[in-house]
Computed example of a mutant assay.
Amino acid sequence: MTAGDPAPRAQDGLEAFAALAAHQLGEAVALMRGAASVLENERVRIGPGGQDALRALNAGGERAQRYVDDLLDVVRASSAVEGPTSADLDSALDAAAAELEPFLARERVQLRREPLPRAALDAREAQRLFTHLLRSALAAGASRVLLAGGTGDDGVTVEMLDDGTPAADGSRPFEPFARPRGRGPLIGAGVSLPVCRRIVERRGGTIAMATREDGATLVTIRLASAG
């Protein structure tokens, strides 16, 4: 790839736009939440119709905040890597599952897991990786998710298997905003799998998705072992 290749410039432009959009959306969300806070104090006076509007305002604010968080994660996942790292993947998965517990409980998702090894990620990267993996399964309407991993001579392998809608033939699941697996209950900016790819690849790893014969989706991640 040459210095004049338009691809790096386009990528830099996308990240700059994501940072700007996150900032502008963040300010709008703050205004929405401020208005919702005022209405909360007037809940009795605004009556049933006003309370319905308040619920809609809160729901819209939560959804907009997810878009802001997604865009910020795109920017963070593109930043420079800092030194050797070691993350406890079990702890990272615990934190991600706790973050998404309201959605997992509401959709009655069965999350099963086997012990996970340590890997060459930092703790925040590892948590965001699992958060976005689980969000991709939720967005696909999964009701069962299994995570497992192991360590071998060539590093660490992590696998996630879910029963959500498979990616459409010919789709590019790791491209931003593609939403290749349908629109389940947790809608965001459509960057969960692309953020996963960036987190993994910036550490020299690989990530792939395949649809099994039974229709289940398997995401396989390979990373360096923790130093």
Rank of each mutant, 00 (worst) to 15 (best):
D73T: 08
G215D: 06
A208H: 08
P185C: 00
A97N: 13
P173F: 00
P6M: 00
C196M: 12
V68D: 11
E125A: 05
A119R: 10
L31I: 14
R118G: 03
F174Y: 13
T211W: 03
A28T: 10
T220P: 13
S79T: 07
D122R: 02
T157H: 13
F174A: 01
G188A: 02
D163Y: 05
S143I: 01
N41M: 14
L54W: 06
L93M: 15
L72P: 05
T85F: 12
S136Q: 08
V74C: 11
V75W: 08
R197M: 00
G13K: 11
V195C: 02
R128N: 05
L116I: 01
S171T: 11
G204S: 01
C196L: 04
I187A: 02
L134F: 01
P117D: 03
E125F: 05
L129W: 08
P166T: 05
A126R: 08
T151A: 02
L146Q: 11
G26E: 10
A98Q: 14
L57W: 13
E175S: 12
T2L: 07
E107Y: 05
G50T: 08
R144A: 12
G141K: 02
L134C: 00
L14T: 04
G34M: 06
A87H: 00
E40K: 12
G47D: 04
R144M: 03
R212P: 09
L193V: 08
V219A: 03
R33N: 15
F17M: 14
P115Q: 00
S91V: 07
S192A: 15
A226N: 14
I46P: 13
I46A: 10
L20W: 07
L147G: 11
D73C: 01
A64V: 04
A30D: 15
E15G: 11
A92W: 08
A10W: 12
D5C: 07
R181V: 02
G83W: 07
R108P: 10
F103Y: 11
T206Q: 08
L161C: 10
A216C: 15
D52V: 13
P185V: 00
G227V: 05
L138I: 10
A140T: 11
R212M: 05
R197Y: 01
G215L: 10
E107V: 05
R113V: 01
A96N: 10
D52C: 03
A208N: 09
L111D: 11
V219F: 11
L134E: 08
R43I: 15
A22N: 10
A178R: 13
R124A: 03
P173W: 03
S143F: 01
I207Q: 12
G50S: 10
D169F: 13
P173V: 01
F130E: 09
A148W: 01
F130H: 05
T157I: 13
G152A: 03
